[in-house]
């Protein structure tokens, strides 16, 4: 036993993490980084972390991952959608290194993808937004036109509309994951247009900081962002990657790692819902809890028909549930969302 531990200690599993933003962005990248820290705590000397932050999506990511593979990484977690093609290319060059890509849809023999069903969280946030808005206009700060973001917009809108048939959604595309000044400007622009509840799909806390200054309600995104509770932050979608990372690294240690496409939601704890703030009336809390409970016990799926596409063509019939394939590649708005998705 002692010998086995000694052997492990001498040869730790090298785990690489690639982040799109700084590890203290207060949101997306920070939560991946914190999960990596938890991983380190869990395994101690058995793992060695190689982290690289603020890596742009594109050729730089390929260089970073190649470097990680060359320095002996056993498994690399690439934590942004835009790394997908680079992961594919590096994974092909290093068949003995395991690659895990967050929120994408491609995979290979040594190339797995994992994501969280954030749309489940969006369903809860959308419900709250629909009930809390007084102007009947809710806003959505969208980053890039990728399926994950489009699912978020659709899920938010569907559930806002369920509790408030008059609600409209205004989507602003920022073409960035992280640009606090632009996120703040866009939030301000939405507020000027009479929007009073805003869901953000970007990584910084700037939207909440702006709402604290100028009014309106928002939500924590990727992180709890509890420092902005009870107002403007009403609740939050929290990413919890740590259990998944532990499971996958353990699999590498045991030699049982296999490629997979993992997609977990609120039930498995990959998507956490932050505390409902006291700015929410009890009936709103109750309704949000009801939606959440339905998702957890499996009695309710956020994309349940009848639902039409934006142009009015039928998508899901009464009671029909969207299949994961369609959701994974979602490239259309549902009926009622205005505007076009940029290409």
């Amino acid at each position: 036993m002692a010998a086995a531990t000694g052997a492990l200690a001498a040869d730790p599993v090298k785990v690489g993490f690639v982040y799109v933003g700084p590890v203290n962005d207060g949101g997306w990248s920070q939560h991946h980084h914190e999960a990596a820290m938890t991983l380190k705590e869990h395994f101690g000397d058995q793992v060695e972390l190689i982290e690289q932050e603020s890596v742009p999506e594109g050729p730089d990511a390929e260089r970073v991952m190649t470097q990680m593979a060359l320095t002996g990484a056993d498994i690399v977690f690439a934590t942004s959608f835009g790394y997908m093609d680079q992961v594919e290319s590096v994974a092909a060059k290093f068949p003995n290194v395991k690659f895990e890509h967050a929120t994408g849809f491609k995979s290979g023999p040594n190339f797995a993808n994992y994501s969280a069903r954030f749309y489940e969280g969006r369903a809860v946030m959308g419900t709250i937004a629909g009930m809390m808005t007084e102007s009947n206009k809710i806003g959505y700060l969208a980053s890039f036109p990728i399926p994950e973001v489009i699912r978020g917009i659709n899920s938010s809108f569907i559930h806002a509309q369920k509790v408030n048939p008059d609600v409209e959604i205004r989507v602003v595309w920022l073409n960035t994951w992280y640009d606090p000044a632009k996120e703040a400007d866009a939030t301000q622009a939405l507020l000027e247009q009479g929007v009073d509840v805003i869901l953000a799909h970007t990584d910084s806390t700037a939207p909440l900081a702006t709402m604290e200054k100028s009014g309106g309600y928002g939500f924590g995104q990727a992180a709890d962002m509890a420092q902005y509770a009870p107002e403007p932050r009403l609740s939050s979608i929290i990413d919890d990657w740590a259990p998944y990372y532990e499971e996958r690294v353990q699999a590498v240690m045991d030699g049982t790692w296999e490629t997979a496409a993992t997609w977990s939601g609120i039930k498995d704890g990959m998507v956490g819902i932050g505390d409902f703030s006291d700015a929410m009336p009890d009936e709103v809390k109750a309704k949000a809890q009801e939606v959440m409970d339905g998702i957890v016990d499996g009695s309710y799926h956020p994309f349940t028909g009848p639902l039409n596409k934006q142009d009015g063509t039928p998508w899901l019939a009464e009671g029909e549930i969207a299949d994961d394939g369609t959701l994974a590649g979602m490239d259309f708005y549902v009926e009622g969302v205005t505007g076009d998705i940029p290409n």
Binding site: G21, P22, N24, D25, G26, S54, T176, Y178, D179, P180, A181, K182, A184, S204, T205, A206, A209, T210, K213
Partner: peptide
């Protein structure tokens, strides 16, 4: 913005 976040000048 108003807050500090890394790389905020973007």
């Amino acid at each position: 913005v108003p807050q500090w976040t890394e790389g905020m000048t973007a």
